[in-house]
Amino acid sequence: MPEDLKDQNGSKKGLTALLEEVKSEVKVLKEKGVEEAKSLQDPEKTQLYKSIFRVKHDDKPRSRALGVLSNVFLHLHPAKINRDAVAYNYTWGMGGISFYLFVVLTFTGTLLMFYYHPSKVQAFRDILYLEHDVPFGKLLRNMHRWAAHLMIITVWLHMFRVFLTGSYKKPREFNWVVGVILMLLTMLLSFTGYLLPDDQLGFWAVTVGTNMARATPLLGHEGPFGPELGMTAYNDVRFGLLGGSIVDSNALLRAYIWHCIAIPLIASVFMAVHFWRVRKDGGISGPSPMMLASEIKEERKL
């Protein structure tokens, strides 16, 4: 275009022509823009949406199924499930709630880690700082604490439900075993966290708790056959747990690492296995059709 202008030697007429040209260009652009804006009314047609979700969001059975299966967070679920199993009264939702609480605890726990130093000098002050100066610090600490307690309750109730529905029976025996390990890990997570505020409550609870380790048969210096095997207060299991013979700075550091890194990682691995097995064992166990005593088949003998 600038080439055309030069030919006309910069006359006024050239300027109007330029203006006209710009106008028409703007008009085209505007129409394009309006059209695009209109298409945004249906965001599911945009490249952005399609690139993220990949599946149409409508109530066709195919889309519903794909929506679950093609989403990394939702694909733990099958696409369809037993119609009676979604009713609350069968599972009580306790497994799912336990998992949700684990997620809440990971989230609040990570935020707490920003403010906490696992050292004898700092730990207690950090809690005071959290409670009094950090915005929402108190709420954060409370939520972490109560979610931990609640998780223990929901895990126990989950186990109770799985027992009452006989869901540990063939073929789910092994998932029950994984579950028992998860329960132990949940309680250990809570227990290691108890020491971290470095206050009297945690200190004495952990002292009472680890004192029992002294009495471990064979491996504790006060346990049966411990002294005979050369156990002293400086080389037995309790020493290994605390990193010393008393609950002190090493114990605090060890509790911190177990609590924030090791046990959460181990528990995550076991949870992954647990959920995987729920699927591989044929999905949730029921409510399944009832079997009558007269239908028990003879066990195949080895």
Partner: peptide
């Protein structure tokens, strides 16, 4: 428990 319980009934229902 799952390995000791020889009762096949009550698998998946209350």
């Amino acid at each position: 428990i799952p390995y000791m319980d020889a009762n096949p009934l009550g698998n998946g229902y209350y």
